Simulated scan of single mutants.
Amino acid sequence: MTIEPLINYISNLFDISNNDIRLLTHFFKNTNFSKGSILEKENIVAQKLYFIRNGFIRTFSNEDGIEITTQIVGENNFITGFNSFVSGFISKENIQCISDCEVLHITKSDYETLTKESAIWSTFCKQVYEKAITFNQQRTTDLLTLSAEKQYLKLLAEQPEIIQNVPIQHIASYIGIKPESLSRIRKKIIS
């Protein structure tokens, strides 16, 4: 198993040198996780950044014993408790595999070393963070302004792979409703 998907992802945006490839290969490790595995736990500082080669991963918070899914990502996406990973603050999120997953990961200390040694990596990460901030800002707006049905339709149009591969309870939580309500919305859309 190689880190080729990550290299391809970066090289689609930037010219990547052999030295950058060597550094990425040295610092990123490939790991398989089974469905349900917790990659990072709440109430600790996030220690790793993950690049998903295969599978689906979610972040969720526990609010009075109820899991609230805050993010769902699949192949060729990065995931971590970004606020915690970047700032060193305690994470309020758990990161869990929704399916069997193959990921590439880098530790915080290796990430910092890679950032110092590779200008491309530093520039690339800035772009990843900007994309995450933009996505999260739009998601907040959608949660506040769109009905659950419109949120579901938007998810269906923009990320159909999530609808096809993620259990209904996680999708419902992600758009802020109960699974029964999502079932009604899906039946309405189909008919």
Rank of each mutant, 00 (worst) to 15 (best):
F78D: 01
P5S: 05
Y9S: 09
V128N: 01
T2F: 10
Q169D: 08
E75S: 14
S61W: 00
L153Y: 07
S11G: 09
F14M: 08
T2E: 14
F124R: 03
I95K: 02
L182H: 04
I190M: 11
L182Q: 04
E112H: 14
I190C: 09
K178S: 04
T70E: 12
K150V: 06
S183H: 10
S122W: 03
E158Q: 14
I72F: 01
I38D: 01
I66Q: 14
T25R: 15
E112F: 10
S191R: 14
N76Y: 06
L23K: 10
A157K: 15
G88P: 06
E112T: 13
A148T: 02
N8E: 14
K154A: 08
G176M: 05
R139P: 08
A119V: 10
Q47N: 14
I120V: 13
E149P: 00
D100M: 09
T70N: 15
N77W: 12
I72W: 04
F82S: 05
F14T: 02
F89E: 08
P167A: 12
D20R: 03
F60I: 01
C125M: 15
I95P: 04
G81H: 03
P5Q: 05
K126M: 05
H105I: 00
E75Y: 01
P179Y: 06
F27H: 09
T140P: 00
I38C: 04
N83W: 03
C97F: 07
R53T: 08
F85G: 02
E75W: 00
I57D: 02
Y50M: 04
T70G: 05
A172K: 02
T31E: 13
P179K: 10
Q164W: 03
V86K: 10
G55I: 04
L156Q: 15
L182C: 07
E102C: 07
I7F: 08
T141V: 12
N94Q: 09
H105F: 11
R58T: 05
Y129L: 15
F51E: 03
F51W: 07
S99V: 07
R22Q: 10
R186W: 04
Q169M: 08
C97P: 10
D20V: 03
L114F: 09
N62V: 13
T141M: 10
E180M: 10
E130S: 13
Q137H: 11
T2M: 08
S17P: 09
F89R: 11
Q151N: 12
C125W: 15
S183W: 11
E75G: 06
Q47A: 13
